[in-house]
Each structure stands twice: as structure tokens, then as C-alpha cells.
Amino acid sequence: MIYNQKTSIKLSLLLFGGISFQACYQAMSQENSTEKYAIVSKKREISNDTLPSSFGFGRKATQVEIDRLDIDVRPDGKGLPAGSGLAAKGKLIFDAKCFACHGVGGIGGPNGSLVTNKAPVAAARKEKTIGNYWPYATTVFDYIRRAMPFNEPGSLTNEEVYHLTAYLLRANEIIDENTVINAKTLPKIEMPARDLFIPDDRKGGPEIR
């Protein structure tokens, strides 16, 4: 490499075409080394195909490290934290932090309604809401906790998220105002859109689905 550089500097001083000469020189030497490598790699090909049972890269995750990130909630309630919520308390939070995007009472905001509008709407397409389109109530908790409010994501306490979840379920007339929402009750709520969905049945082939 040192030899290479020296050679090219000299040539650059002597010739205007020094740069292209260097390029040629390197290309030639690369060709030679590739040829040599090809012989070696043929011999090694077979053993290289087998991966070791473990590479040993990465470090073991501690439970603390896992808990710090593991915020997801499943429909069966797995992942729901301690705490509980009530619709009346959720309304106070909603009116302070959510209505600007989602509308008064969760209807008609610039970023989409969350609550089904019972009044007759002139709009060509019915808005998809928590009440008419979300199959599981746990998703409401999970999504608010991970991504809302939009301008301050991840800023709500678990208790606040439970309150908001209760409020949105109540506003969609899925629970009554006295229902306490917690890790036990939330997974049991049957959402109106529970049976709205069918898993992808497209399979390729000539049929249009």
C-alpha cells in the first residue's frame, strides 16, 4: 500500500495521467489476489455452509432491561399493568389533551373521530371509530400508552391511560359510566367490531380476491 501511494505520487508529478495509471495498477493487483483467494475458498466452501449452533454475539437481556421496553398488551390481557380507570376521570384528560385532534366528545376532529357519531351524517363514508371498527379493547390501552398524545407521546401514566380507555369505551356506549377498567376487566369487554374481520384469504393464482 505504501509502495502504491509513493508510486502514484511520483507518477502524478511526472505525468498528467497519473491517477488513471494508479487505478490500473490497483485493478491488476486485485485480480491477482482474487485468483489466489478463489482456490482457498473452494476448499473452505463446505465447512462455511454450516452455521455454528451459537455465535455468542450479543448479551443476555436482564429482566429489568426487558421490562423497560416491554409495553405491549395482548387481547388476552397479557401485558396490562396495575391500575384502573373511570370514564368520568378520563373525560377530564380527554378535554385537556385529546379533543384538539379528535374533536369534542371524540367526534369530528382533524385527526379522525374515535367515537361513533349517532347523529345522521351526510358524509359519503362512515368514519371508522373505536366503537365500530376496533376488535379488541386492549388495543385502545396499548396504543394510547405507546403513541399518544401525538405532541407528547409516552407522557401519560398507566392510570391516566386506564381513565382515557374507560372514557372512550363509555363514549362509544360499550361500557356504562360506573365500569372500572383494569387488567381484569379490559380483556373481557366484547367490542362491537369483534367479528368484523377475517384473516387474509388471498392465495395467489388466477382468482381475484
Binding site: P75, Y143, I198, D200
Partner: peptide, 22 residues
């Protein structure tokens, strides 16, 4: 997990009032 992105979004209508998921 039925996350928001695979229920409320990224699902599409098919016939008979049903919607396709996943």
C-alpha cells in the same frame, strides 16, 4: 397482538360487510 396498525389501520373491506386482517 392486534395492534392499532393491524386492526384500525391496514385492514381493508371485502364483501358482505367484512374486513380483511393480516
Amino acid at each position: 397482538y392486534y395492534t392499532r396498525e393491524e386492526t384500525s389501520k391496514y385492514t381493508e373491506p371485502i364483501k358482505d360487510g367484512k374486513y380483511r386482517i393480516f
